[in-house]
Simulated scan of single mutants.
Amino acid sequence: MDTKYKIPFALAILSAALMGCSSNKIKEEKIKPNPLPKLAQATSLVPVFSQNVSSTSEEDPLRLRLDSDNGVIFLLDPKGTVAAYKGKQRLWETRVSKNGLSSGVTAADGLVIAGNKKGQLFAVDQATGEQKWVAQLSGAVISPALVQAGRVIAIANDGTVFAFDESTGQQAWTYKMTNAAFSLRGQAAPVSIDARTIVVATSNGYVYAIDSLTGIPRMQRRVAVSEGHSDIQRLVDIDGDPVVAGQYLVTNSFQGQVTVLDLAAQQVVWSEDVSSITRPEVADNKVFVAQTDGKLTAYDLTTGQQLWQNEQLLNRNLSNPVMLGQNLVVGDLDGMLHLINPDSGQLVGRSKTSGEVRSLRVIDQQLYASTRKGALSVWQNR
C-alpha cells in the first residue's frame, strides 16, 4: 500500500558514501562505533518496569513506543497484540491484528490506538482491552497517532493525514501532503500545537499546520533545504517528531537542518546544518540534537548559538534525546542509556537495557524506552 519508494536509513548512508566512487571493486568499510568512555563517579537509573516483546528487523527503523494513562502502561507486540499493565500486573492482553503492528501505541480519552503496515488503525478500550473499531488508511501506519478534540489523527506512509471520530472510527477528513517520491522509511507523528491545531511533517522538508476538527490547512512552511545532486543526497526527511516550545516549532531533518520556526509569524528564526532522523529535545531554552553521526549538540533556542557539542558517542546510532530530571538521556546501538549534563555536554552516567534503543520519552518524570530487540522498559532517577 506504500506509494513512495522507501529505503532504510542504513542503506541511504551506505549509498551516499559510495557516490562518485569510480572503482569497479568497492570494499565496504564497516564504521566502528566509538568505545564507551570511562566514567569516574557514574550516575545510573533504576528500572521500575520491563517487558519483552517480539524484536523488529534491523533494517526497519520502527519505533514501537510505550504510552501511559491514569497510571497504566500500554504497550504492543509487533506480532499483533496490545497489553495493559498496572505495575507488574498485566490487566489484559488483546490480539488486534493478524498482520502485526508497526506504529507504537497512543493512550488517551479511554482508548489505546495502534496501527499496522496494511494501513489498519485499531482502537481498543483502555479498561477492558475490547476492540472498539478498525479504520483503514491508504498506506502503512509507522508512527503513533494523536488523539485530540474528539479525533484520532494518523498519517499513512504515502503522506495522507487521516482523522477519525474517536467514538465510532468514522472518517472525518483527510489531507494529502506533498511528499518526496524517494525517501527514507520513517514518518514523524502528528503533534498538537493547541486545542484545535496539529502540525505534521513530511519527507520533503515541509511542515503543515491543520485544523484538527475540519482538516483545513492553516500553514505550510518549508523548514529543510537540500543541496545534494543525487536522489540520495537530496533526501531531507523529517522523521523525528516536531517539538512545540511556546511560540516556536523545532524540527530536525536528515541531511538538512535543525530549524526553529516562529509559529505566529510563520517565519524561520534560525537554522543550522545538521543531519538527524530523531526528535529534538527542548528544555531550559536549549535545543538538543542527536545527529546521525553520533554527535550530540546543544543550541540556544532563541538565537541558534551552539552551546556545546559532545563527540564521545560517534557512530553509536543515537536515539532521540530527552530530559529526565536534571539530566539529558540518549540511548545507543548497544542498549546504553547515557546520562549527560545539559549545561556542559559532559557524560555523567549510564544504565543498560537490551538492544538498540529506538525510542525514548518521559512521562511523569519516568523514562520510557523501547529497543529493536523488543525490550520495553520504564526507568527513574536513583
Rank of each mutant, 00 (worst) to 15 (best):
P190K: 08
A290P: 00
P35C: 14
V82Y: 10
L184R: 10
A107M: 03
L376D: 04
I73A: 02
D69G: 07
S230H: 08
R234G: 01
G349V: 00
P78A: 06
L18D: 11
T160N: 06
Y299R: 05
Q89W: 07
T160P: 00
P61E: 13
V53S: 05
S97I: 10
V223A: 03
V225Y: 15
R222D: 00
L360N: 11
M1H: 12
S377T: 15
R151K: 13
Y85N: 06
A369I: 07
G345V: 13
V152G: 03
K88W: 05
L66S: 04
L367N: 04
K352F: 12
E311I: 13
S138R: 11
N157M: 10
T197F: 02
G159W: 01
E311T: 15
A298W: 06
A17M: 13
N70F: 11
R382M: 04
I198V: 14
Y248E: 06
S138Y: 01
G240L: 04
M177S: 07
G325C: 10
L360Y: 06
N24W: 08
V357E: 09
D109V: 01
P61M: 06
K352T: 13
Y208H: 15
V46A: 10
F182N: 01
Q131T: 15
N24V: 04
A154M: 04
D364K: 12
L328D: 11
T178K: 14
G256F: 04
Y85V: 02
P321C: 10
N327E: 14
K286V: 05
K373H: 07
V378C: 05
W379D: 03
Q346R: 15
E166P: 00
L337D: 04
M1T: 13
V357S: 07
V322H: 08
T251Q: 02
R95Y: 10
R196G: 03
N204P: 01
I142A: 08
H338R: 04
R95A: 15
N99V: 09
Q233A: 15
E130G: 09
K132G: 05
I277G: 00
S351C: 00
I142E: 07
V268H: 04
A189W: 05
S22E: 15
E356S: 13
G246F: 11
V207S: 02
L307K: 13
L301N: 02
T56S: 12
N116Q: 11
V53K: 06
N99W: 14
T353D: 08
G215R: 01
V250I: 15
N157T: 13
S68I: 09
P61N: 13
Q136E: 15
Q51H: 15
V330A: 10
A108C: 02
S253R: 04
S253T: 08
W270C: 06
T278P: 02
N24Y: 11
G169Q: 08
L314N: 11
P8W: 03
I142L: 08
N179A: 09
L184D: 01
G240Q: 08
N116A: 01
P242E: 07
I73T: 13
I238D: 05
W379M: 00
